[in-house]
């Protein structure tokens, strides 16, 4: 189980690196989409079907938005010459990464390993089907136990829609 997950995440890392270094923006977007769809497989493996559905549709919509923007634009990224400084930069990046990963590793040593989670706040949520009447426990948490969060979330989408309308209006000043 964990090994399978690790393989998929490794694949995602490679996809992400390719996506960040691709010359053509369209192929970068497609690689990013593949990373997103691999995430769906991870969600299914981790027993989260709700999230899999949401992620698959949201990823599709995001890809449509992004491709629609990139399609008629200059897609080529400006080429950079490889200089000596590039190697120094790669060295610094790797060093920082190693330090951060090492500190992260020491930080999580004491916590539960994958698969041996215990619940404290969520114990009540798991037994809560009688209290909310919802057979889907995630929906029960979303709309009843933590409905206030969901109201905020819908508000964020509303804010983003108003914000996009604001930014994309044709004339700014009278």
């Amino acid at each position: 189980m964990e090994i399978l997950l690790c393989v998929i995440i490794l694949f995602m890392i490679i996809g992400a690196l390719y996506s960040l270094h691709a010359k053509d923006l369209l192929s970068a977007l497609i690689a990013c989409g593949i990373v997103g769809y691999s995430l769906v497989i991870c969600f299914l493996l981790l027993k989260a079907p709700d999230l899999a559905i949401v992620q698959i549709v949201v990823e599709t919509i995001t890809l449509i938005f992004m491709v629609a923007i990139v399609l008629n634009s200059t897609r080529e990224e400006v080429k950079k010459q490889i200089t000596k400084r590039a190697f120094v930069n790669i060295g610094i990046t790797l060093a920082v990464t190693i330090v951060l990963v090492f500190s992260f590793n020491t930080a999580i040593e004491a916590l539960n390993p994958l698969g041996s989670h215990t619940t404290r706040m969520a114990t009540e949520y798991i037994q809560g089907a009688d209290k909310t009447g919802s057979a889907n426990l995630v929906t029960g948490v979303l709309f009843d136990f933590r409905g206030y969060d969901t109201l905020g979330e819908a508000t964020i989408l509303f804010t983003a829609a108003i914000g996009v309308l604001t930014v994309l209006r044709l004339k700014g000043r009278q």
Binding site: I61, G133, T139, A154
Partner: peptide, 24 residues
């Protein structure tokens, strides 16, 4: 069943659909 939850679902669905359509 589940009290108000289906109603929330319907209106949130409506909100999400029209918000994304507006953005697009």
């Amino acid at each position: 069943s589940a009290g108000v939850i289906p109603l929330y679902n319907i209106f949130i669905g409506m909100e999400v659909a029209s918000a994304l359509l507006t953005i697009f």
